[in-house]
């Protein structure tokens, strides 16, 4: 038992003894709080009549009732927007070992390299879940407060809301695992960060949008990691913004995300992790 617990505890210690985790958590909280609070105020204001709908350019047609239930949408920002943070933390935790050559002391202490990578995956899963809790503290905490302020029911007594919160935590945890996988696939830290930012902020949203145009591409597009994540969580602003898109069941979305993480990690194990440490 010690054989895996010790490396896991060591990986936790690695994360917690540098500043990156709380910097990312802080930025995540601020970013999501701003976004969830702002949109909750906008839509809450519209729904409650505090804001005159004519004053807002809704792009024509799309009425608020078409958006479905407002609170889950706001709450899902924690993962639908915040998922980039656990990916970054996972990728940094892995590429940092290459960059700072800490693989040497790590493999000297634990020569079984597969065990180290497994330990890193487990610890990042847990830290990713913790980032999920931080993101939710922002999206649910601030979102519900603002919605409540406009007299909109924040649905906090609803079991479905809490199920969504649980699934969001799981999604964020899986994203951190994907980050670890990316880090071993692309051990260059700069390249890894560029890929994370370009893919999550630009390439994937574009692909998801484009995929929704035809049925065939939509069937493929729903397996894109971001789409799978939104499917797992069960609500997303993005899904609503492209109504033509089909969505996976939550459990399918979860499995797809897990598959991305595991395939990347196992692939990376052979590409970089098993290599000579020089």
């Amino acid at each position: 038992m010690n054989l895996i617990l010790r490396p896991v505890a060591a990986e936790f210690s690695k994360i917690l003894t540098t500043r990156m985790w709380w910097i990312l958590a802080l930025v995540l909280f601020g970013y999501i709080a701003l976004l969830a609070g702002g949109l909750a105020a906008l839509f809450g204001g519209l729904e409650s009549g505090a804001i005159n709908p004519d004053a807002v350019n809704t792009g024509g047609g799309s009425s608020l009732t078409g958006l479905g239930s407002l609170p889950p949408l706001i709450y899902s920002f924690a993962s639908s927007v915040g998922y980039v943070f656990p990916v970054l933390l996972g990728a940094l935790a892995t590429t940092g070992e290459f960059r700072h050559q800490t693989l040497t002391p790590t493999f000297l202490a634990t020569p079984k390299r597969g065990r180290v990578l497994g330990a890193k995956t487990i610890s990042l899963f847990v830290v990713g879940a913790a980032l999920g809790v931080v993101g939710l503290a922002a999206s649910v905490g601030v979102g519900a407060l603002v919605l409540g302020g406009f007299g909109v029911d924040p649905l906090l007594a609803d079991g479905e809301t809490w199920a969504l919160i649980g699934r969001t935590v799981l999604a964020m945890a899986l994203w951190a695992v994907i980050g670890v996988g990316l880090g071993v696939l692309v051990p260059s830290q700069v390249a890894s960060i560029v890929i994370v930012l370009a893919f999550t902020q630009f390439v994937e949203p574009l692909l998801r949008f484009a995929a929704a145009f035809t049925e065939v591409t939509a069937d493929i597009g729903k397996f894109l990691p971001g789409a799978a994540s939104d499917a797992l969580v069960g609500a997303s602003f993005f899904t609503l913004a492209s109504p033509g898109g089909t969505v996976l069941e939550p459990w399918q979305g979860g499995l797809a995300l897990l598959a991305y993480g595991l395939v990347a990690t196992v692939g990376g194990y052979f590409i970089s992790w098993k290599r000579d440490v020089t």
Partner: peptide, 14 residues
């Protein structure tokens, strides 16, 4: 970014 004590601490745990 890690202190010397933390650096060594990681590997005592491992």
């Amino acid at each position: 970014g890690r202190t010397a004590a933390h650096h060594l601490g990681v590997y005592t745990i491992a």
